[in-house]
Nucleic acid binder design. Structure first.
Length: 410
DNA sequence: TCTGGGGTCCTAGGACCC
DNA sequence: TCTGGGGTCCTAGGACCC
């Protein structure tokens, strides 16, 4: 049985003026498909992109059990005739750009999820473009003809449903879940299909005797909250009932930029670690500058010999994308962590910069006490007198106050 | 399954503020 | 000077996704 609150929310959903309609478009075995497109001799054969680790496997390779994230050795053990190809990121970026052009021509409301998948809001397009299945079919045809790549498309009344449908439709298929058929479609699927249920959560549910999406849907939300925590528990209960009010978010910005490198355990001393830190910091700050972004929180990411993860982070007073500033903070963090690292052994080191803002504003966070407050007010007034009322914005006086001042053109 | 590299979001305790 | 409620930010860890 559905809980009363669920029924009520669903009723509210139905009373909306028009039902939202979403597509989820997902390129099949993306990198591998680009290679097969550009190298006809690879078509119909088991191929994988990547050497040490498999980044993508063609469906012919998947038939042997080859999967993303496997080592090359594991993959060749499963499929001795596997052909591996070095990745060509520029080719994939270019193909992605053209596929997203096709998405944009389908609807103005496109939310990219990664290099090879996106949500497309097609609500209200029916009158112009026809039924959902027609829109999806046209999109698939266009991507195949223009870019030469197979695209799978799922459709339904929520983003979540569209995403599940495209996964079920793969490879090279289309599946539109009809209005009213949502819960029947979802119920028999394994819980792992729920967005946000990975191995850990799946095992927790399985041990409680819950194996299908339908069983999650009928569980009391309180039970799921007790088992998985408030956010995850409520989230998966709502998804299982196809309650997903999230709209398409056009133009989402990245919230962090990072880079990392792995190496065999025991091969890196402190100076070797410093070289890697410089390399990854340089890569990250370069990307920040290219994107005209600055970040305020520097995190070093560690992976120990036992493959457990660790982080150390520090938030700067002023956001930056300067290599020297980020490296200085990262070096301090690594120094502080080094005793721990020496003891546990290291196999990966990386850095991430988060708290990103556009590089068009000067943002300062000033720690101060209430006794300084009138001086801050005076400073803000002076800047506004000189540069205009919009020159300074001040965050609410809670937590750590910030003032933000746009850089002036001259 | 002995495991790469790029990300997102959530949790929880402590510090700090009103 | 003490106490409580409500709230944000920082930090570290973890699950999950492609």
């Amino acid at each position: 049985m559905m809980s009363a609150s669920v029924r009520e929310e669903q009723h509210r959903g139905w009373s909306q003026p028009s039902t939202p309609r979403f597509l989820h478009a997902d390129l099949d075995a993306f990198y591998a498909s680009v290679e097969q497109r550009d190298h006809p001799e690879l078509r119909g054969k088991p191929i994988a992109v990547g050497g040490g680790v498999i980044l993508a496997a063609s469906y012919e390779a998947r038939a042997f059990g080859v999967k993303t994230a496997m080592t090359g050795r594991q993959a060749r053990a499963l499929c001795p005739q596997l052909i591996t190809v070095d990745p060509r990121m520029e080719a994939y970026t270019e193909a992605s750009r053209r596929v997203f052009d096709a998405f944009a021509d389908c609807s103005p409301n496109v939310e990219g999820l990664s290099i090879d998948e996106a949500f497309i809001d097609i609500s209200g397009l029916g009158r112009i473009a026809g039924p959902d299945a027609t829109i999806a079919g046209n999109l698939r045809r266009r991507v195949l003809e223009d870019v030469g790549l197979p695209l799978s498309v799922g459709g339904g009344s929520t983003k979540f449903l569209a995403k599940v449908a495209s996964a079920v439709a793969k490879p090279n298929g289309v599946l539109i879940v009809p209005d009213g058929g949502e819960l029947d479609f979802l119920a028999p699927l394994p819980v792992g299909r729920l967005w946000g249920v990975g191995p850990v959560t799946e095992e927790a549910l399985r041990s409680a005797g819950v194996n299908t999406v339908g069983e999650v849907a009928e569980l009391a939300p309180e039970l799921l909250v007790a088992k998985l925590g408030p956010a995850a528990g409520r989230h998966i209960h709502r998804l299982a009932n196809n309650l997903d009010p999230r709209p398409i978010e056009v133009g989402r910005r990245r919230r962090s930029i990072g880079s990392q490198r792995s190496f065999p355990v025991g091969t890196i001393d402190r100076s070797g670690a410093q070289e890697i830190l410089l390399e990854v910091t340089d890569r990250v700050t370069r990307r920040l500058r290219t994107g005209e972004r600055i970040g305020r929180t520097v995190t070093i990411r560690l992976r120990y010999a036992d493959y457990r993860a660790g982080t150390r982070s520090r938030t700067l007073i002023e956001a930056t994308n300067a290599t020297a500033a980020v490296l200085e903070t990262a070096t301090e963090l690594l120094d502080e962590a080094w005793a721990d690292v020496s003891e546990r052994g290291l196999t990966r080191l990386g850095i991430a910069v988060s708290g990103l803002t556009d590089d068009t504003a000067l943002q300062l966070t000033l720690p101060f006490t209430k006794h300084d407050r009138h001086r801050l007010d005076e400073a803000v007034d002076q800047i506004r007198d000189r540069f205009g009322l919009d020159a300074v914005t001040r965050a609410p006086l809670v937590g750590r106050p910030t003032i933000e001042m746009p850089l002036l053109p001259d």
